[in-house]
């Protein structure tokens, strides 16, 4: 953000100085350009250097060592941390649960968000009320949502199991059954994400010209045909945006996991970010945490590139 702004500013500056520079000697011009570049890029480079590049390089460095209790590097092990991590069954399990979680959250958030947005995009009496309700989860903090869902999913006193009991349905251990815990966490995350997704997609729908639907109606196109041939292509930039934001957000999920399952039961919801936190700040195993961070960075970078390369071609701006 900062950097691109500075580049732009620099270009504009160059343009406005063009006539002056023509008169100036060539060497002098180069030197003053460099001065400007340092002046404008300096602050952002300094900040990025201190808060982004240095920690990144340090993380990479630490991942090649063993670290002691104080987080100091002691024994150089080369890529051994990586090989043992990538062959560890529990890490691979974490990795696969992370992917299940991310894909589950992304797909459900977009599908449900779109459904709600399409529904709310009608002219009905009282629709304003529903529009407010649908976007209201944006205002709910993670901790409040976690407590709310803990009440819903509590195995004996929870709302869900109480209702199941009344209807004589089997009562499930939503949070303690390793197979169900993931579903519970995904549902909670989707609920949290829904408000924002709804708002973005609803805003996009409002911008689709009415005339397109009128034309389609006159031609006798069905509603579902209109959805896939008009609505979705027209709002594809917003869908793309929501997709990337949800993807990256899901990879970074921490609050709900920490508050609801703490990575359990039996590591079923021990997603990568949570694992890194546990290894660094609870177990004090900094080299392991650094190794995991590097792996996570690579995964997110690859996923984002794929999304940009593949999906962006299908987006109509």
């Amino acid at each position: 953000m900062l950097k691109s702004f500075d580049n732009k500013a620099l270009e504009e500056l160059n343009d406005s100085n063009a006539s002056e520079n023509e008169r100036a000697k060539k060497g002098l011009k180069k030197r003053s350009d460099f001065g400007y570049a340092v002046l404008f890029l300096g602050p952002s480079l300094l900040l990025l250097g201190v808060f982004v590049f240095y920690p990144m390089i340090k993380t990479l460095y630490m991942s090649l060592f063993l670290t002691n209790n104080f987080g100091q590097t002691t024994i150089f092990v080369g890529l051994k941390n990586y090989t043992s991590l990538l062959t560890s069954a529990s890490f691979l399990a974490s990795l696969s649960s992370t992917f299940i979680y991310v894909i589950g959250v992304m797909v459900l958030t977009i599908v449900l968000g779109l459904a709600l947005a399409v529904f709310a995009n009608q002219k009905l009496k009282g629709i304003q009320f529903f529009r407010t309700i649908f976007s209201s989860t944006m205002g709910v903090s993670v901790s409040v949502a976690a407590i709310f869902f803990l009440f819903v999913f509590n195995p004996t006193t929870g709302l869900l199991n109480q209702m199941a009991g009344l209807l004589h349905l089997p009562q499930l251990n939503w949070m303690t059954d390793p197979n169900l815990a993931m579903i519970t966490v995904i549902v909670s995350t989707v609920w949290m994400n829904l408000g924002f997704t709804f708002l973005v997609l609803f805003g996009a729908l409002q911008a689709v010209p009415r005339s397109l639907y009128d034309a389609a109606d006159i031609e006798g196109a069905s509603k579902s045909y209109q959805l896939f041939k008009i609505t979705i292509p027209m709002i594809s930039p917003s869908l793309f945006f929501v997709g990337i934001v949800t993807l990256i957000g899901a990879f970074k999920s921490f609050g709900l996991i920490d508050l609801m399952t703490a990575g359990g039961p039996n590591n079923a919801t021990n997603l990568l970010v949570y694992r890194i936190y546990q290894d660094a700040f609870l177990n004090g195993n900094y080299s392991q945490a650094s190794t995991e961070s590097i792996v996570l960075t690579i995964i997110i970078a690859v996923m984002t590139i794929i999304q940009f390369k593949v999906l962006e071609k299908r987006v109509n701006y």
């Binding site: 803990l150 195995p155 004996t156 251990n173 949070m175 303690t176 815990a181 508050l259 609801m260 399952t261 703490a262 990575g263 359990g264 039961p265």
Partner: peptide, 8 residues
């Protein structure tokens, strides 16, 4: 009955 693990 199992309530899982962790503070919750």
């Amino acid at each position: 009955i199992s309530f899982g693990s962790g503070s919750t």
